[in-house]
């Protein structure tokens, strides 16, 4: 199970790195194409879709490292035990927010399911799905962080 998780994790990291690499290549290609045989219709659209997926998923890793911009100043002043309790509570609230986003996104994704994007002609749900899928990942990460907070809380009693 643990090995499977590690494998899954590396696959996602590789996917994210691949998104950024593809964006770079595709856009550089567009510059060359425009200077030579004429611009392609799809690089702009593809790069926006890859950015949405790559970065929204990458945000889960940042969350996991507690790396998003925030004010830790006051919580740090309270000491480890109350700090861990508050941190756990905050992550519960993040879970509620993410769950609400996913809930609302169901209607949203359904409504654009049959619509096609302008140049790639794929379902418009493809880019939109990045939001609920990433929010599911954030929930998963938050659960792990809450477990961590509880451990800290126990340890410092």
């Amino acid at each position: 199970m643990k090995r499977l998780l590690t494998l899954f994790d590396s696959a996602i990291q590789l996917f994210i790195a691949g998104c950024i690499a593809t964006i770079m290549v595709v856009i550089a290609l567009q510059v060359v194409m425009r200077a030579t045989v004429g611009a392609l219709p799809w690089p702009e659209e593809l790069s926006v879709i890859l950015m949405l997926w790559g970065l929204m998923l990458a945000a889960a890793y940042v969350l996991n490292e507690r790396g998003h911009v925030g004010i830790q100043f006051f919580v740090d002043m309270l000491g480890p035990r109350p700090g861990a309790a508050i941190s756990a509570l905050m992550h519960v609230i993040i879970i509620i927010f993410c769950a609400a986003v996913i809930w609302g996104a169901i209607d949203k994704v359904e409504s654009v399911w049959n619509l096609k994007t302008g140049s790639l002609r794929i379902s418009r749900a493809v880019p939109q799905l990045a939001i609920p899928v990433s929010c599911a990942a954030y929930i998963f990460v938050c659960l792990r962080l809450i477990a961590e907070d509880i451990a800290i809380w126990r340890r410092s009693s």
Partner: peptide, 23 residues
């Protein structure tokens, strides 16, 4: 042309112009 507008791309090309997507 708009990058996403097939119609204008086809139309401008049919007129002999080079359709160039610019935001």
């Amino acid at each position: 042309t708009l990058p996403s507008s097939q119609l204008t791309i086809k139309a401008w090309e049919a007129l002999g112009a080079a359709a160039t997507p610019v935001s």
